[in-house]
Amino acid sequence: MSKPFRIAVFASGSGSNFQAIADAVKAGKLDVRIELLVCDRPQALVVERANNAGVPVHTFRPKEYPSREAYELDILEILRSKHIDLVVLAGYMRILTPVLVDAYWGRMINVHPSLLPSFPGLHAVRQALEHGVKLTGITVHLVDGGLDSGPILAQRALEIRQDDTEASLSERIHPLEHELLPQVIQQIATGQIDLDHITNLKPKDGIQS
């Protein structure tokens, strides 16, 4: 019997992407075990979602630590104790340090609401609207320590409407995230996406912010 593919999800807010992953697991569309939710906001809705899904939760308050590295060392110890195969950043709003990035290089992915390399960083939907582009979308990529600069694993495009606002466009982007992120996780878990091959092609410190 093969061992389960273990993932940890990092999120800071409502957790709609976490819920999409949990729902895909429950529906048998995603053959992984969610071993942990990591959240930097103990009162966030995603914590309630994880509790309802029976997923263990690690919450913390960054201000209670002397540095980012300090709380990431705590998180790293937990990840290793649970033998996590893949870290999934799903709306996690904190800057990562080399403590986690180096430890999980090639085994950490992020979902970003733009067609990278366009509009990295914060407020990607707003950036797309301000630049007047006709097409945006989402990207799932490896985390390499730069600003949304890691190797791209998958993308989905979405046409921007003339009457779109930041709120309306964000609302239309979310379903794409909820569909694509679980699919990419499944492809990684089953070997359809070979992360070892991809990481061998691109050095970790290739493109930095």
Rank of each mutant, 00 (worst) to 15 (best):
K3T: 15
K3R: 14
F5I: 10
F5W: 04
A8T: 11
V9M: 07
A11W: 02
G13K: 11
S14Q: 12
S14Y: 05
S14F: 06
S14N: 14
S16Y: 02
N17Q: 12
N17C: 07
F18W: 03
Q19Y: 01
Q19H: 01
I21M: 05
A22I: 08
D23T: 14
D23I: 08
A24V: 09
V25C: 15
V25G: 05
A27T: 00
R33S: 15
I34Q: 09
E35D: 15
L36S: 05
L36A: 04
L36E: 13
L36N: 05
L37A: 10
V38D: 04
C39Y: 12
D40C: 09
V46I: 13
V46G: 08
V46W: 08
V47I: 05
E48C: 00
A50G: 11
N51D: 09
V55W: 00
P56L: 05
P56R: 01
H58W: 11
T59G: 03
F60V: 05
P62Y: 03
S67N: 11
R68S: 13
E69Y: 01
A70T: 02
Y71Q: 03
E72R: 07
E72V: 07
L73Y: 06
I75H: 08
I75V: 14
L79T: 10
L79Q: 10
K82F: 11
K82Y: 13
H83N: 15
I84S: 06
V88L: 01
L89Y: 04
L89M: 12
M93P: 06
L96M: 11
T97L: 08
P98F: 11
P98W: 09
V99K: 02
V101T: 15
V101D: 06
R107T: 11
R107H: 15
M108R: 02
N110S: 07
P113I: 02
S114H: 06
L115Q: 07
L115K: 02
L116F: 11
S118C: 05
F119W: 06
L122I: 14
L122G: 02
L122E: 03
H123F: 03
V125D: 04
R126Q: 14
E130C: 00
E130S: 12
E130K: 11
E130G: 00
T136E: 08
T136V: 03
I138F: 00
I138C: 02
T139C: 05
V140P: 03
V143I: 13
V143D: 08
D144Y: 02
G145P: 01
G146S: 09
G146M: 08
S149F: 03
S149K: 03
G150R: 04
L153S: 08
L153G: 06
R156S: 09
R156I: 01
A157H: 09
L158Y: 05
R161A: 12
R161K: 15
R161G: 06
R161S: 07
T165A: 04
E166T: 01
A167I: 12
A167Y: 06
S168G: 03
S168M: 05
S170L: 10
R172D: 13
I173E: 05
I173Y: 00
H174W: 00
H174G: 00
L176W: 01
H178L: 01
H178E: 13
E179N: 09
E179C: 01
E179H: 07
P182A: 03
V184P: 06
V184R: 04
Q187E: 15
T190S: 15
T190C: 13
T190M: 01
I193D: 12
D194G: 12
D196G: 15
I198D: 11
I198V: 15
K202T: 14
K204I: 11
S209P: 14
